[in-house]
Design a binder for these strands. Structure first.
Length: 516
RNA sequence: GGGAGCGUAGCUCAAUUGGCAGAGCAAUGGACUCUUAAUCCAUAGGUUGAAGGUUCGAUUCCUUCCGCUCUCACCA
């Protein structure tokens, strides 16, 4: 038979690719299509493992199993002359295949020489245990399905380089099992969430992602710009789903949710990706109190479903999601911090007293942007109290000032506050919810204030959405709504420090031209 | 955008005061019918992110640029 090795062959990446191409060519010459199709793959490694986990070697000898047909990536090859051990990795995991020359035949065994690590291969044979007890497939057939031209990263350390892991996620997924697990958990999180809401009579809906300029509100953020050619229309990518979902509440759907991508033209860091996933849900005739109960039930159930426990490790801490979650009053805690009596006391605090607690430049600078008592309360909370929130429990922060809550309903018993909460866990905001503002005239006034803010140069101010006012004028039932950050929850349930570890293809700067 | 750090073989990592750029895995050839980070023998693989500078000599020192990480700013 023809010899592949070339004298003077090197092992630069180009040479390795060329060698593998030559192997593919040799297989073609022997009638094997290195990129064939139509191979039935009736089983998975998981099926074999589940069926024979408790069978010992003797049992498998006495009771011959059926022949299993498996396909996957060749992750290891250990050749011992006329016997070879291969590890095949499919969606369920890895399984060893024991290939003996006298079982597969001389010709098939010879073709093994054309198999490289990383190739996609098919194996057929009964279940057995090797001398060391490892459950294996004793191959009666082993063949190439797809030739890999590039070598896999090292088997022991896997792919470590963070940048390559994100840019070439296919390699990361192929060789790093914990990455597969993280995205499995993300999928379980999303399907569990859907199930939870569906069971409670919420209707899943889809609203536009392309927003006309006047629609791109619902949050304080800068949008991405785009353009529709046929209509010659400037459009923006949505920064929230809020305003469309509330229109559906006006329309009488009563319970709706949208799970989807939103886009914010802002900085990128460990907790922020320009496109990310939220679920927003709105429930007519509910209050923010109802949503607090719903949230702690939902998140604790998801923790259990996704991770198998209600107490989940995150970055060195253990977070116990069991309800009820501790509640922290923003207004009360800030008043207590300053030793004054409630909102009345805080309103009388001079700026010098507010700043007395801040000894660093940066919070002092931020304070100059706080133009109302409410904004100062929020500043003090974020600066001094938020970092002290318990790390072993999620927390609800309640009693938000109206000045920092432009879409929330004023509280009847205390008009300086709104019926709103945010949920925090692992040092991150994971949810924001409130009883919705449904007074069209009040909403008009708040839009107007936003337009004025925009005129003053606030690039994150919302536009005046005339049609949304028209919708509210038709009457929106008293409603509570909430937004949950799916990526943040995925981080918490996978113990990921970076949002990029739970987004398959995070946004990166373009890669340099050279190199392959 | 500011600050700090990192970038060496396909992968994971070394390289002394600035003195011939190395190892393991992967690859190639050979031996081996129960290995599992297989083992053994042999071989080959480098624009040290890019460009420039200092120097007899630069992976090492300097400048600029590119990318990534952390951090600050920004950010419901």
């Amino acid at each position: 038979m023809a010899e592949i090795p070339q004298p003077g062959a090197t092992s630069s990446i180009e040479d390795q690719i060329r060698l593998r191409e030559q192997k593919a060519e040799q297989l073609r010459e022997r009638g094997v299509n290195p990129y064939g199709t139509g191979v039935a793959v009736p089983h998975t490694t998981g099926i074999v493992r589940a069926r024979h986990e408790s069978d010992d070697a003797a049992a498998l000898e006495a009771n011959r199993s059926e022949d299993y047909g498996l396909a996957g990536r060749v992750m290891a090859l250990r050749t011992m002359g006329k016997a070879t051990f291969a590890s095949l990795r499919d969606r369920d995991g890895d399984l060893q295949v024991f290939i003996k020359k006298d079982k597969v035949g001389d010709a098939a065994y010879e073709l093994l020489k054309q198999i490289d690590l990383g190739d996609i291969a098919f194996a057929r044979g009964r279940a057995m245990r090797t001398r060391t007890g490892e459950l294996s497939i004793e191959a009666v057939e082993f063949k190439l399905l797809s030739k890999a031209l590039r070598p896999l990263p090292e088997k022991w350390h896997g792919l470590q380089d963070v940048e390559t892991r994100y840019r070439q996620r296919y390699v990361d997924l192929a060789v790093n099992p914990e990455v597969r697990e993280a995205f499995r958990r993300r999928a379980a999180l999303i399907s569990g969430l859907r199930r939870f809401l569906d069971e409670r009579g919420y209707l899943e809906v889809e609203t536009p992602i392309l927003h006309k300029p006047e629609e791109a509100g619902g949050a304080a953020a800068r949008p991405f710009q785009t353009h529709h050619n046929a209509l010659d229309l400037d459009l923006k990518l949505r920064i929230a789903t809020e305003l469309h979902l509330k229109r559906l509440i006006v329309g009488g759907l009563e319970r709706v949710y949208e799970l989807g991508r939103i886009f914010r033209n802002e900085g990128i860091d460990r907790r922020h990706n320009p496109e990310f996933t939220t679920v927003e849900f709105y429930q007519a005739y509910a209050t923010h109190e109802d949503l607090m109960l719903l949230t702690e039930l939902l998140v604790s159930r998801l923790a259990l479903e996704v991770t198998g426990a209600a107490v989940v490790p995150y970055q060195g801490a253990l977070i116990d999601y069991t309800p009820p979650w501790p509640r922290v009053s923003m207004a009360f805690e800030v008043a207590r911090l300053y030793g004054v009596a409630g909102l009345d006391g805080l309103e009388k605090l001079p700026d010098a007293a507010w700043l007395a607690k801040a000894d660093k430049d940066e919070p002092r600078k931020k304070f100059t942007h706080a133009h109302s008592t409410g904004a100062k309360i929020a500043w003090a909370f974020e600066t001094f109290i938020e970092p002290m929130l318990r790390s072993d429990r999620p927390s609800f922060v309640i009693d938000y000032p109206i000045e920092v809550s432009p879409l929330a309903r004023r509280r009847d018993s205390e008009p300086r506050l709104v019926d709103r909460f945010e949920a925090f866990a692992g040092g991150m905001e994971i949810a924001n919810a409130f009883s919705e503002l449904n007074d069209p005239r009040d909403q008009e006034a708040r839009f107007r204030a936003q337009v004025e803010a925009a005129a003053r140069g606030d690039v994150e101010a919302m536009p005046y959405d005339r049609d949304f006012i028209r919708a509210l004028e038709h009457g929106m039932p008293p409603t509570a709504g909430e937004g949950l950050g799916i990526d943040r929850l995925a981080m918490l349930f996978t113990d990921s420090a970076s949002i990029r570890d739970v987004i398959l293809f995070p946004l990166l700067k373009p890669e340099a031209e050279e190199g392959r």
